[in-house]
Amino acid sequence: MVSVPQPSAGSSKNPIRWLMLNRSTWLYPLLGIGGFLLVWQISASLNLTRLPGPLSLWTNERTRELLLYPFYDRGGLDKGLFWQTMASLGRVAQGYLLAALVGISAGITVGLSPALNRAFDPLFQFLRMVAPLAWVPIALVIFQKNQPAAIFVIFITAIWPILINTAEGVRQIPQDYRNVALVLQMSKGRFFTKVLIPSALPYIFTGLRISIGLAWLAIIAAEIVMSGIVGIGFFIWDSYQQNYLSDIILAVLWIGAVGLLLDRAMAWLQSRLTPGQ
């Protein structure tokens, strides 16, 4: 039997009609954000706060340049916000990948051994609570250089959720699955790829998703204290030092947007790789 697609309320061809029918999905967020910006702009215009209002992104000439030309590059630290963001993302990628690699391997090892788990879990739980900013001086002392120190701060911030969730995922492998592996006398490698990893994957992804957000938060913290590097975090600190307040607002917009994109990307990857679990 062939079914003819019927036009339904949600998928009308006419865009205006579509907007009208789905207004609850866009109208409320629009009202919320618009109201927030309005209150902010008014309080800035009335000089209730020194923070410039959202209109300053356009009215301030230097900020408008930054807004309109994110790709300019005049060498040194004088780069557009796209390049500043990319430099930070590069550091996040390195620290995060390292954290994923070490976190998943260590998590599996700890998850498979009740003794190791009992030995190290309190330590992990403790280190997990240390804020990214607190790692910065330690990282600088260890590495003496800005770049590796920044990557280390990412790494050490991002690793705990990955490690703890992976270990939990391995511990949660149902006894039934382990018993199947025992009866079939599965080799270690086969158990690993056919049972352990698929079973623990949803937990691993939970850790990876929490950590990508943390890693992005940490890079800002790390760069703010490290002078003289290209990066969105140091850009904010530099703007503050020079009292370019509207530049800070623009940079914060970039940070929020990138963080949101990273989280969405991980969620998408998660839904692709762990279907129906």
Binding site: D176, V180, K194
Partner: peptide, 12 residues
């Protein structure tokens, strides 16, 4: 070989 009480099939 055992037929387990909860089937014990690998859902993935």
């Amino acid at each position: 070989m055992v037929v387990f009480q909860g089937y014990a099939l690998l859902p993935w």
